[in-house]
Amino acid sequence: MFSPDNLQAIWLTLRLATTATLLLLLIGTPLAWWLSRTHSWLRGPVAAIVALPLVLPPTVLGFYLLLALAPAGPIGQLTGALGLGSLAFTFEGLVIGSILYSLPFVVQPIQNAFHAMGDGPLEVAATFGAGPWRRFFTVAIPLARPGFISGSILGFAHTVGEFGVVLMIGGNIPGETRVVSVQIYEQVEALQFGEAHWLAGAMVVFSFLVLLVVYGSIGRHAIPGMRFGS
């Protein structure tokens, strides 16, 4: 079955994807709400920035992250001043990279769900005297649930599938930055095809199951933001 090295990589990958997804929900929800409600001229530019990782090669993100995380870079100076040291080649550095990399996969489904809900339910809630916070937590979030589910699944799966960014800022440290995709790459290069088969096969099964959940059972309820390809 899985060797200890492979198990370590799987565990690390799950930890990374979980951490990144939780943080993405925290950051992405207000962002998606703002994008779906605002009439500001900033909406276009912000939406474009959020979508950038969809089209940019991971090497571009990796390159700029590497420069930003270095001790002389903006993030490196900040973390240095906070006494955290440089985040390149650390788990925390990968979390930052994953948040940027998977941002559109979480924000867009939630944003679409907020948008699809329309103003009606919120206005009704307002006439019953619900304040803006109450309206958001008791009306908007429950109604946008399918968007949250598909955003979480896609953000998680996309982080699991991350490779280029990790290769550039990870440094291949076992238990810290050597995630499944990097482990497979190393095993293939070292011609350990047997080991690589286990991990690569597991990735295929995992990804299929994720998409089956998204397109299959939940898909019948037409998840916003997941209509591409159908």
């Binding site: 270095a70 002389a72 440089s86 080649f89 440094g171 291949n172 440290i173 790459y185």
Partner: peptide, 20 residues
Amino acid sequence: SLIMGENISQAYQFVATGNA
């Protein structure tokens, strides 16, 4: 403390950018 580049060029790049 060891961080590994995929090849010697990446190891060099890690040090040259000040990340290591």
